Simulated assay, not measured.
Amino acid sequence: MALIRLIRDDDIVAVSGGALMAELAEMLPKLHMNVDVLPIRRGFGRRIDFLPNNVAAHMAEKLGGKYHILQIPDGLSPEFFYKLKKELPQINQTEELFSKAGILVTGIDSAEDIKKYHELPSDVTRRLEKENVSSEALGLYVNAEGKILYRLYNVGISRDDIPAIPHILITAGGSHNGEAILAVARAGIRGVLITDEGAGRKILQLVSGEKATTGGCKDHG
């Protein structure tokens, strides 16, 4: 498993939520490591076992390390988010831990996952559906071209933090996730992709179809 090969004592591991992340935590062997596991955000949704806080706790339990719980809710307005950061010192303490994270493990939610598991304000849900949301990762909701349609402001890790994290593992599989993976990559969320043949074939099919539609790269010189 890629995570086991990377992780070392004293590492700080940040992990997202979702069905695949919960499954990954369950698959980990029982170890005795001195690591800290952080949820990349508090999360929300209809399945408690898929929330980042719970995934982080389960992963830490498997690795033998410590876990940290985020109490600040997701989806705050930018103004309120930055006001909280200024007034609550514990947020800055938590963010200091995030700044030292050496490994980020995140999944990708497809449009269907968003519809099934994400609890967003009804007006946001309607807008995202109208604008053809393709996927979500790290609090960014994007369309197939990678355009950001909506962003959640929360304590944790965002796309802007990626360059400072040495190891990024992105997990998603199945042909139904091909478009979601491609969309997230186009939005600037890059790392080592852990996927399967179905998703890989779908990505190649989408890219090949776009090249055929545009006539490929032409030299207009």
Rank of each mutant, 00 (worst) to 15 (best):
A137I: 03
L84T: 10
D109G: 15
K115D: 11
K147P: 00
L138Y: 05
N132C: 09
V124H: 06
I162Y: 12
S122E: 10
V155W: 01
L140T: 02
D123Y: 11
S158H: 12
I114N: 00
G146A: 04
L149C: 08
L88Y: 12
E129V: 10
K115F: 15
S99D: 11
S134Y: 02
I157K: 00
T94P: 02
S110Y: 00
K83P: 00
Y153K: 06
L138W: 04
N92C: 10
L138D: 02
A111T: 05
E112D: 08
A111F: 05
K130R: 15
Q90E: 15
L97T: 09
T125N: 12
N92K: 08
N92I: 07
Q90G: 07
I148H: 04
S110F: 00
E95S: 02
L97I: 13
E87H: 04
L84V: 08
Q93I: 13
A111D: 14
S158K: 09
G146W: 02
K86H: 13
N154W: 03
L97M: 15
T106P: 01
N143H: 07
A137G: 04
E96I: 03
T106Y: 02
G107N: 11
L138S: 04
E145R: 10
P163V: 14
K147W: 01
R151A: 11
S99Y: 13
K130T: 10
K115I: 09
V142S: 08
L140F: 07
K100Q: 14
A144V: 07
P121H: 09
P121A: 10
I114A: 01
A144D: 11
I108Q: 07
T125S: 13
L104Q: 05
I103F: 01
G139W: 00
